[in-house]
């Protein structure tokens, strides 16, 4: 009985017009039912707004709200904590027809979601250079590497880092700098370099190739080869150090930890 009641009640919360009647079989006042429907929709829409502030700034409040409301109705949360809500929004944006003339929008949203993840991801250990240095040379080649759970790599055919940064700076300077869309591809690393800090960094082609291999679960050896091929004179030692400092990588898995 209660189960059936809750399914009926829930069926009208996110779908249908707000001023419409209450769900069928539920003998309640529509205006009063509408208070709950409004609260559910507006709080979830607000959660998406909070997670994607730059995307919202770029398309404007009305456009974003319409897009977020449709997302909420079709992709409601499956977890009861909102830091987990919005992961599929960039994909949704990519297929949202009214936004089709903004092809860089999904990648911008991906950067924003990566920041949400960076903020709330578990405090897993990150790659330690000492442990890395202790790996015997013959094991290094096949060493599997992976991104830290707080780190994400966004590779875009558009200058999406410039777009993101221009809007962030516009918040501060009240002026939006022009971004040259012809600039083409940009690769971005989002991570948690410090305990209370989120980093968003633009990467060169060598770093990008290295991280693409890491995301694809390829070994350290393969990642190095890809990096050197992608960028003339890529200095693996220096670059790896820089990426380790911003905690891009997960700690070396215990079963291949050869330091002990």
């Amino acid at each position: 009985m209660l189960d059936e009641f809750q399914r009926r009640f829930a069926s009208g919360l996110l779908i249908g017009t707000l001023n419409g009647s209450a769900p069928e079989g539920l003998s309640v006042d529509s205006l009063r039912f509408g208070v709950y429907a409004h609260n559910a929709r507006s709080s979830l829409t607000k959660a998406i707004e909070n997670a994607f502030p730059v995307t919202r700034q770029l398309v404007g409040v009305d456009f974003f709200t319409a897009m977020a409301e449709q997302f909420v109705a079709t992709h409601p949360p499956r977890e009861g904590w909102l830091s987990a809500y919005g992961g599929s929004f960039p994909h949704y944006v990519a297929h949202y027809r009214p936004a089709a003339d903004l092809p860089y929008l999904p990648d911008l949203a991906r950067i924003e979601w990566a920041r949400v993840r960076a903020a709330s991801a578990p405090d897993d250990p990150s790659l330690d250079l000492k442990a890395f240095a202790a790996v015997p040379p013959d094991a290094l080649e096949n060493l599997p590497m992976s991104l830290h759970v707080a780190a994400s790599f966004v590779s875009s055919p558009f200058p999406v880092f410039d777009i993101w940064r221009a809007h962030k700076l516009a918040d501060r300077d009240k002026q939006l700098t022009q971004v040259d869309l012809a600039k083409g591809t940009q690769n971005v690393l989002i991570s948690r370099p410090g305990v209370l800090e989120i980093g968003v960094a633009l990467l060169g082609p060598g770093d990008a190739a290295f991280l693409t291999s890491v995301v694809g679960h390829l070994s350290f050896g393969v990642a190095c080869e890809a990096a050197v091929l992608a960028e003339m004179g890529y200095d693996i030692g220096t670059r790896l150090g820089d990426l380790v400092v911003v905690r891009a990588f997960a700690a070396i898995a215990k079963n291949i930890d050869v330091t002990s």
């Binding site: 903020a119 578990p122 948690r192």
Partner: peptide, 14 residues
Amino acid sequence: AENYFGRGGINHQM
């Protein structure tokens, strides 16, 4: 409670 369900991260650390 649910603002700190990330099992780590910045909010949780704070």
